[in-house]
Design a protein around this nucleic acid. Structure first.
Lengths: 192, 192
DNA sequence: GTCTATAGTGCGATAGAC
DNA sequence: GTCTATCGCACTATAGAC
Protein backbone atom coordinates (compact mmCIF):
# COMPACT_ATOMS: atom_id res chain seq x y z
CA UNK A 1 0.00 0.00 0.00
CA UNK A 2 1.33 3.39 -1.01
CA UNK A 3 1.54 6.18 1.45
CA UNK A 4 0.54 8.76 -1.11
CA UNK A 5 -0.92 8.82 -4.58
CA UNK A 6 0.98 10.84 -7.19
CA UNK A 7 -0.31 14.15 -8.49
CA UNK A 8 -1.34 15.64 -5.18
CA UNK A 9 -1.12 19.16 -6.54
CA UNK A 10 -3.27 18.41 -9.57
CA UNK A 11 -5.89 16.67 -7.43
CA UNK A 12 -6.05 19.68 -5.16
CA UNK A 13 -6.45 22.04 -8.13
CA UNK A 14 -9.25 20.02 -9.67
CA UNK A 15 -11.05 19.58 -6.38
CA UNK A 16 -10.77 23.29 -5.67
CA UNK A 17 -12.13 24.45 -9.02
CA UNK A 18 -14.99 22.00 -8.71
CA UNK A 19 -15.91 23.06 -5.19
CA UNK A 20 -15.53 26.78 -5.94
CA UNK A 21 -17.84 26.40 -8.92
CA UNK A 22 -20.58 24.59 -7.05
CA UNK A 23 -20.33 26.04 -3.56
CA UNK A 24 -18.55 29.32 -4.07
CA UNK A 25 -15.06 30.33 -3.00
CA UNK A 26 -15.92 31.61 0.46
CA UNK A 27 -18.18 28.72 1.26
CA UNK A 28 -15.41 26.26 0.52
CA UNK A 29 -12.83 25.69 3.25
CA UNK A 30 -9.31 24.49 2.68
CA UNK A 31 -10.27 21.43 4.66
CA UNK A 32 -13.04 20.70 2.17
CA UNK A 33 -10.58 20.83 -0.70
CA UNK A 34 -7.97 18.72 1.03
CA UNK A 35 -10.55 16.14 2.06
CA UNK A 36 -11.90 15.95 -1.49
CA UNK A 37 -8.37 15.28 -2.72
CA UNK A 38 -7.68 12.74 0.02
CA UNK A 39 -5.15 14.94 1.78
CA UNK A 40 -4.91 17.17 4.81
CA UNK A 41 -5.04 20.92 5.22
CA UNK A 42 -1.36 21.06 6.04
CA UNK A 43 -0.48 19.42 2.76
CA UNK A 44 -2.58 21.91 0.86
CA UNK A 45 -0.48 24.70 2.27
CA UNK A 46 2.70 22.92 1.29
CA UNK A 47 1.65 23.17 -2.34
CA UNK A 48 -0.02 26.57 -2.30
CA UNK A 49 0.95 29.62 -0.33
CA UNK A 50 -2.69 30.42 0.30
CA UNK A 51 -6.20 29.36 -0.57
CA UNK A 52 -6.48 31.56 -3.64
CA UNK A 53 -3.23 30.46 -5.18
CA UNK A 54 -4.67 27.05 -6.06
CA UNK A 55 -6.40 28.74 -9.02
CA UNK A 56 -3.36 30.61 -10.27
CA UNK A 57 -0.65 28.02 -10.77
CA UNK A 58 0.09 27.73 -14.44
CA UNK A 59 0.14 31.47 -14.88
CA UNK A 60 3.90 31.46 -14.63
CA UNK A 61 3.89 29.03 -17.54
CA UNK A 62 2.10 31.67 -19.56
CA UNK A 63 4.59 34.30 -18.46
CA UNK A 64 7.40 32.05 -19.63
CA UNK A 65 5.88 31.71 -23.10
CA UNK A 66 5.41 35.44 -23.22
CA UNK A 67 9.04 36.07 -22.37
CA UNK A 68 10.20 33.44 -24.81
CA UNK A 69 8.45 35.27 -27.62
CA UNK A 70 10.46 38.37 -26.77
CA UNK A 71 13.74 36.51 -26.42
CA UNK A 72 13.41 34.60 -29.69
CA UNK A 73 12.28 37.51 -31.83
CA UNK A 74 14.57 38.46 -34.73
CA UNK A 75 17.47 40.79 -34.03
CA UNK A 76 16.78 44.44 -34.58
CA UNK A 77 13.06 44.11 -33.91
CA UNK A 78 11.39 47.27 -32.64
CA UNK A 79 9.58 47.22 -29.27
CA UNK A 80 6.26 46.88 -31.06
CA UNK A 81 7.49 43.81 -32.96
CA UNK A 82 8.75 42.33 -29.73
CA UNK A 83 5.41 42.69 -28.04
CA UNK A 84 3.61 41.17 -31.00
CA UNK A 85 5.95 38.23 -30.82
CA UNK A 86 5.30 37.88 -27.09
CA UNK A 87 1.54 37.90 -27.54
CA UNK A 88 1.67 35.39 -30.37
CA UNK A 89 3.93 33.12 -28.37
CA UNK A 90 1.66 33.26 -25.33
CA UNK A 91 -1.48 32.65 -27.33
CA UNK A 92 -0.48 29.10 -28.21
CA UNK A 93 -1.51 28.10 -24.69
CA UNK A 94 -5.04 29.26 -25.38
CA UNK A 95 -6.38 26.87 -27.95
CA UNK A 96 -10.04 26.07 -28.45
CA UNK A 97 -9.87 23.08 -26.13
CA UNK A 98 -8.97 25.35 -23.29
CA UNK A 99 -11.72 27.85 -23.92
CA UNK A 100 -14.43 26.16 -21.81
CA UNK A 101 -12.03 25.63 -18.93
CA UNK A 102 -10.96 29.28 -19.11
CA UNK A 103 -14.60 30.31 -19.00
CA UNK A 104 -15.27 28.27 -15.87
CA UNK A 105 -12.20 29.53 -14.11
CA UNK A 106 -12.98 33.12 -15.00
CA UNK A 107 -16.55 32.75 -13.77
CA UNK A 108 -15.20 31.70 -10.38
CA UNK A 109 -12.80 34.63 -10.28
CA UNK A 110 -15.43 37.14 -11.38
CA UNK A 111 -17.65 36.01 -8.54
CA UNK A 112 -15.10 36.81 -5.84
CA UNK A 113 -13.19 40.01 -5.07
CA UNK A 114 -10.40 38.20 -3.25
CA UNK A 115 -9.70 36.22 -6.40
CA UNK A 116 -9.86 39.33 -8.56
CA UNK A 117 -7.25 40.78 -6.28
CA UNK A 118 -4.93 37.88 -6.90
CA UNK A 119 -5.59 38.00 -10.61
CA UNK A 120 -4.75 41.67 -10.77
CA UNK A 121 -1.50 41.03 -8.93
CA UNK A 122 -0.61 38.33 -11.45
CA UNK A 123 -1.23 40.88 -14.15
CA UNK A 124 1.26 43.23 -12.57
CA UNK A 125 3.81 40.44 -12.23
CA UNK A 126 3.36 39.58 -15.88
CA UNK A 127 3.97 43.19 -16.82
CA UNK A 128 7.09 43.19 -14.68
CA UNK A 129 8.67 40.11 -16.25
CA UNK A 130 7.77 41.33 -19.70
CA UNK A 131 9.38 44.68 -18.97
CA UNK A 132 12.49 42.87 -17.85
CA UNK A 133 12.56 40.78 -21.02
CA UNK A 134 12.29 43.92 -23.14
CA UNK A 135 15.09 45.60 -21.23
CA UNK A 136 17.20 42.50 -21.84
CA UNK A 137 16.58 43.07 -25.54
CA UNK A 138 18.02 46.55 -25.26
CA UNK A 139 14.82 48.55 -24.94
CA UNK A 140 15.04 51.70 -22.85
CA UNK A 141 13.66 51.22 -19.30
CA UNK A 142 10.66 53.49 -19.56
CA UNK A 143 9.81 52.40 -23.10
CA UNK A 144 10.05 48.80 -21.97
CA UNK A 145 7.56 49.40 -19.19
CA UNK A 146 5.17 51.24 -21.49
CA UNK A 147 5.47 48.58 -24.17
CA UNK A 148 4.79 45.87 -21.62
CA UNK A 149 1.74 47.78 -20.38
CA UNK A 150 0.41 48.00 -23.91
CA UNK A 151 0.98 44.32 -24.54
CA UNK A 152 -0.57 43.14 -21.29
CA UNK A 153 -3.56 45.40 -21.83
CA UNK A 154 -4.01 43.93 -25.28
CA UNK A 155 -3.85 40.43 -23.83
CA UNK A 156 -6.42 41.05 -21.11
CA UNK A 157 -8.87 42.86 -23.36
CA UNK A 158 -8.49 40.12 -25.96
CA UNK A 159 -8.87 37.39 -23.35
CA UNK A 160 -12.16 38.88 -22.15
CA UNK A 161 -13.41 38.79 -25.70
CA UNK A 162 -12.07 35.28 -26.27
CA UNK A 163 -14.12 33.75 -23.46
CA UNK A 164 -17.33 35.45 -24.53
CA UNK A 165 -20.03 32.89 -25.27
CA UNK A 166 -20.36 33.74 -28.94
CA UNK A 167 -16.74 34.44 -29.77
CA UNK A 168 -15.11 32.25 -32.42
CA UNK A 169 -11.91 34.09 -33.32
CA UNK A 170 -8.53 33.00 -31.99
CA UNK A 171 -6.95 34.81 -29.07
CA UNK A 172 -4.18 36.19 -31.23
CA UNK A 173 -6.62 37.64 -33.74
CA UNK A 174 -8.28 39.48 -30.90
CA UNK A 175 -4.91 40.63 -29.56
CA UNK A 176 -3.93 42.04 -32.94
CA UNK A 177 -7.23 43.85 -33.13
CA UNK A 178 -6.67 45.34 -29.68
CA UNK A 179 -3.21 46.59 -30.65
CA UNK A 180 -4.52 48.11 -33.86
CA UNK A 181 -7.28 49.88 -31.98
CA UNK A 182 -4.85 51.28 -29.45
CA UNK A 183 -2.71 52.62 -32.25
CA UNK A 184 -5.80 54.26 -33.71
CA UNK A 185 -6.69 55.85 -30.40
CA UNK A 186 -3.31 57.46 -29.82
CA UNK A 187 -2.54 60.50 -31.98
CA UNK A 188 -0.38 60.11 -35.04
CA UNK A 189 3.04 61.66 -34.71
CA UNK A 190 3.91 64.54 -36.94
CA UNK A 191 6.05 63.27 -39.83
CA UNK A 192 9.78 63.73 -39.25
CA UNK B 1 -15.21 64.63 28.91
CA UNK B 2 -16.19 63.53 25.43
CA UNK B 3 -17.27 60.00 24.73
CA UNK B 4 -15.07 59.82 21.64
CA UNK B 5 -12.61 62.10 19.94
CA UNK B 6 -13.50 63.14 16.41
CA UNK B 7 -11.56 61.91 13.42
CA UNK B 8 -11.38 58.28 14.42
CA UNK B 9 -10.80 57.21 10.83
CA UNK B 10 -8.00 59.70 10.30
CA UNK B 11 -6.32 58.71 13.55
CA UNK B 12 -6.44 55.07 12.51
CA UNK B 13 -4.94 55.88 9.11
CA UNK B 14 -2.10 57.89 10.57
CA UNK B 15 -1.38 55.33 13.25
CA UNK B 16 -1.39 52.55 10.67
CA UNK B 17 1.00 54.26 8.26
CA UNK B 18 3.33 55.06 11.12
CA UNK B 19 3.35 51.53 12.51
CA UNK B 20 3.66 49.92 9.07
CA UNK B 21 6.65 52.14 8.32
CA UNK B 22 8.50 51.35 11.51
CA UNK B 23 7.47 47.78 12.28
CA UNK B 24 6.35 46.44 8.94
CA UNK B 25 2.84 45.54 7.80
CA UNK B 26 2.80 41.93 8.96
CA UNK B 27 4.36 42.71 12.29
CA UNK B 28 1.64 45.21 13.04
CA UNK B 29 -1.66 43.81 14.30
CA UNK B 30 -4.98 45.53 13.97
CA UNK B 31 -5.02 45.67 17.74
CA UNK B 32 -1.76 47.63 17.68
CA UNK B 33 -3.28 50.18 15.32
CA UNK B 34 -6.51 50.51 17.26
CA UNK B 35 -4.66 50.88 20.54
CA UNK B 36 -2.39 53.55 19.10
CA UNK B 37 -5.48 55.46 18.01
CA UNK B 38 -7.21 54.96 21.34
CA UNK B 39 -9.88 52.70 19.89
CA UNK B 40 -10.82 49.04 19.80
CA UNK B 41 -10.29 46.41 17.12
CA UNK B 42 -13.99 46.33 16.47
CA UNK B 43 -13.98 50.01 15.67
CA UNK B 44 -11.16 49.55 13.19
CA UNK B 45 -13.22 47.05 11.25
CA UNK B 46 -16.19 49.39 11.31
CA UNK B 47 -14.16 51.92 9.33
CA UNK B 48 -12.15 49.58 7.11
CA UNK B 49 -13.22 46.34 5.50
CA UNK B 50 -9.86 44.79 6.25
CA UNK B 51 -6.41 45.58 7.56
CA UNK B 52 -5.01 46.59 4.17
CA UNK B 53 -7.82 48.93 3.31
CA UNK B 54 -6.61 51.48 5.87
CA UNK B 55 -3.93 52.51 3.35
CA UNK B 56 -6.27 52.79 0.38
CA UNK B 57 -9.02 55.15 1.39
CA UNK B 58 -8.76 58.30 -0.65
CA UNK B 59 -8.21 56.37 -3.84
CA UNK B 60 -11.87 56.69 -4.70
CA UNK B 61 -11.41 60.44 -4.42
CA UNK B 62 -8.80 60.18 -7.13
CA UNK B 63 -11.11 58.06 -9.26
CA UNK B 64 -13.78 60.74 -8.91
CA UNK B 65 -11.42 63.45 -10.18
CA UNK B 66 -10.43 61.21 -13.04
CA UNK B 67 -14.03 60.68 -14.04
CA UNK B 68 -14.82 64.35 -13.65
CA UNK B 69 -12.14 65.18 -16.19
CA UNK B 70 -13.86 62.92 -18.69
CA UNK B 71 -17.33 64.22 -17.92
CA UNK B 72 -16.38 67.89 -18.17
CA UNK B 73 -14.31 67.65 -21.34
CA UNK B 74 -15.57 69.67 -24.32
CA UNK B 75 -18.20 68.12 -26.55
CA UNK B 76 -16.88 66.23 -29.54
CA UNK B 77 -13.57 65.40 -27.88
CA UNK B 78 -11.90 62.25 -29.20
CA UNK B 79 -11.11 59.39 -26.77
CA UNK B 80 -7.52 60.52 -26.59
CA UNK B 81 -8.59 64.06 -25.59
CA UNK B 82 -10.88 62.61 -22.97
CA UNK B 83 -8.11 60.60 -21.40
CA UNK B 84 -5.79 63.58 -21.38
CA UNK B 85 -8.48 65.55 -19.60
CA UNK B 86 -8.93 62.75 -17.07
CA UNK B 87 -5.22 62.56 -16.31
CA UNK B 88 -4.91 66.32 -15.96
CA UNK B 89 -7.91 66.45 -13.69
CA UNK B 90 -6.59 63.66 -11.48
CA UNK B 91 -3.13 65.16 -11.26
CA UNK B 92 -4.32 68.16 -9.25
CA UNK B 93 -4.43 65.87 -6.21
CA UNK B 94 -0.73 65.20 -6.54
CA UNK B 95 0.95 68.46 -5.74
CA UNK B 96 4.47 68.84 -4.41
CA UNK B 97 3.26 68.87 -0.81
CA UNK B 98 1.92 65.40 -1.25
CA UNK B 99 5.07 63.98 -2.79
CA UNK B 100 6.84 62.96 0.44
CA UNK B 101 3.70 61.37 1.81
CA UNK B 102 3.20 59.44 -1.44
CA UNK B 103 6.78 58.23 -1.21
CA UNK B 104 6.29 56.91 2.31
CA UNK B 105 3.05 55.21 1.48
CA UNK B 106 4.52 53.61 -1.62
CA UNK B 107 7.53 52.37 0.33
CA UNK B 108 5.19 50.54 2.68
CA UNK B 109 3.26 49.03 -0.23
CA UNK B 110 6.39 48.01 -2.10
CA UNK B 111 7.58 46.15 0.97
CA UNK B 112 4.53 43.92 1.18
CA UNK B 113 2.92 41.64 -1.41
CA UNK B 114 -0.49 41.71 0.27
CA UNK B 115 -0.56 45.48 -0.12
CA UNK B 116 0.60 45.27 -3.72
CA UNK B 117 -2.32 42.98 -4.30
CA UNK B 118 -4.75 45.54 -3.00
CA UNK B 119 -3.08 48.29 -4.99
CA UNK B 120 -3.33 46.30 -8.19
CA UNK B 121 -7.02 45.70 -7.55
CA UNK B 122 -7.54 49.43 -7.09
CA UNK B 123 -5.87 49.92 -10.41
CA UNK B 124 -8.34 47.58 -12.06
CA UNK B 125 -11.24 49.36 -10.37
CA UNK B 126 -9.93 52.68 -11.61
CA UNK B 127 -9.76 51.32 -15.13
CA UNK B 128 -13.32 50.07 -14.80
CA UNK B 129 -14.81 53.38 -13.69
CA UNK B 130 -12.84 55.23 -16.33
CA UNK B 131 -14.11 52.85 -18.99
CA UNK B 132 -17.63 53.50 -17.80
CA UNK B 133 -17.11 57.25 -17.94
CA UNK B 134 -15.85 56.98 -21.51
CA UNK B 135 -18.79 54.85 -22.53
CA UNK B 136 -21.05 57.51 -21.01
CA UNK B 137 -19.37 59.97 -23.36
CA UNK B 138 -20.34 57.83 -26.32
CA UNK B 139 -17.10 55.93 -26.84
CA UNK B 140 -17.46 52.40 -28.19
CA UNK B 141 -17.19 49.74 -25.47
CA UNK B 142 -13.95 48.13 -26.57
CA UNK B 143 -12.31 51.45 -27.46
CA UNK B 144 -13.36 52.79 -24.07
CA UNK B 145 -11.67 49.89 -22.31
CA UNK B 146 -8.51 50.26 -24.38
CA UNK B 147 -8.42 54.02 -23.88
CA UNK B 148 -8.85 53.56 -20.14
CA UNK B 149 -6.03 51.02 -20.12
CA UNK B 150 -3.75 53.46 -21.90
CA UNK B 151 -4.63 56.25 -19.50
CA UNK B 152 -4.22 54.22 -16.34
CA UNK B 153 -0.92 52.85 -17.61
CA UNK B 154 0.27 56.38 -18.25
CA UNK B 155 -0.76 57.40 -14.75
CA UNK B 156 1.00 54.53 -13.01
CA UNK B 157 4.20 54.85 -15.02
CA UNK B 158 4.19 58.60 -14.43
CA UNK B 159 3.47 58.17 -10.74
CA UNK B 160 6.47 55.85 -10.33
CA UNK B 161 8.63 58.52 -11.91
CA UNK B 162 7.03 61.28 -9.86
CA UNK B 163 8.03 59.72 -6.52
CA UNK B 164 11.60 59.06 -7.58
CA UNK B 165 14.04 60.82 -5.26
CA UNK B 166 15.48 63.13 -7.89
CA UNK B 167 12.35 63.86 -9.88
CA UNK B 168 11.23 67.50 -10.08
CA UNK B 169 8.67 67.54 -12.89
CA UNK B 170 4.93 67.63 -12.22
CA UNK B 171 2.87 64.48 -12.43
CA UNK B 172 1.01 65.71 -15.47
CA UNK B 173 4.22 66.47 -17.33
CA UNK B 174 5.26 62.89 -16.74
CA UNK B 175 1.85 61.62 -17.81
CA UNK B 176 2.03 63.54 -21.07
CA UNK B 177 5.47 62.14 -21.70
CA UNK B 178 4.20 58.62 -21.10
CA UNK B 179 1.35 59.10 -23.55
CA UNK B 180 3.69 60.51 -26.17
CA UNK B 181 6.04 57.58 -25.77
CA UNK B 182 3.22 55.08 -26.10
CA UNK B 183 2.14 56.78 -29.31
CA UNK B 184 5.71 56.50 -30.57
CA UNK B 185 5.87 52.80 -29.72
CA UNK B 186 2.72 51.85 -31.58
CA UNK B 187 3.00 51.80 -35.37
CA UNK B 188 1.73 54.73 -37.40
CA UNK B 189 -1.40 53.96 -39.37
CA UNK B 190 -1.24 54.08 -43.10
CA UNK B 191 -2.72 57.37 -44.28
CA UNK B 192 -6.36 57.05 -45.40
C1' DG C 1 -19.06 44.21 22.34
C1' DT C 2 -18.25 39.16 22.68
C1' DC C 3 -17.62 34.84 20.48
C1' DT C 4 -16.06 31.87 16.97
C1' DA C 5 -14.68 29.91 12.45
C1' DT C 6 -11.06 29.81 9.30
C1' DA C 7 -6.69 31.08 7.23
C1' DG C 8 -2.21 30.46 7.69
C1' DT C 9 2.43 29.37 10.45
C1' DG C 10 6.00 26.73 13.07
C1' DC C 11 7.84 22.69 14.54
C1' DG C 12 8.23 17.91 14.88
C1' DA C 13 7.15 13.09 13.62
C1' DT C 14 6.67 9.57 10.15
C1' DA C 15 6.71 7.00 5.90
C1' DG C 16 8.39 5.96 1.80
C1' DA C 17 11.92 6.73 -2.35
C1' DC C 18 16.62 6.61 -3.43
C1' DG D 1 22.02 6.65 5.53
C1' DT D 2 19.62 11.17 2.88
C1' DC D 3 15.78 13.49 0.84
C1' DT D 4 11.11 14.67 0.28
C1' DA D 5 6.14 14.39 0.85
C1' DT D 6 2.76 13.92 4.18
C1' DC D 7 0.57 14.34 8.62
C1' DG D 8 -0.43 16.13 13.57
C1' DC D 9 -0.82 19.49 16.69
C1' DA D 10 -0.64 23.84 18.81
C1' DC D 11 -0.94 28.46 17.92
C1' DT D 12 -2.11 33.51 16.34
C1' DA D 13 -4.65 37.02 13.81
C1' DT D 14 -8.16 38.20 10.81
C1' DA D 15 -12.68 38.79 9.97
C1' DG D 16 -17.40 37.91 10.39
C1' DA D 17 -21.51 36.26 13.05
C1' DC D 18 -24.34 36.88 16.78
Amino acid sequence: MVRWEPGAKERLQLAALDLFLHRGFEQTTVQDIAQEAGLTERTFFRHFADKREVLFQGQQQYAAEFVRGVRDAPAGAAPFELIRAALLSGSVLFDDERRPWSRQRQAVIDANPALQERESLKRVSLTDVLTEALVARGVDDVDARLTAEIGVSAFFVAFRGWIRADEQRSLDDLQQEALARMAAILPTRAPA
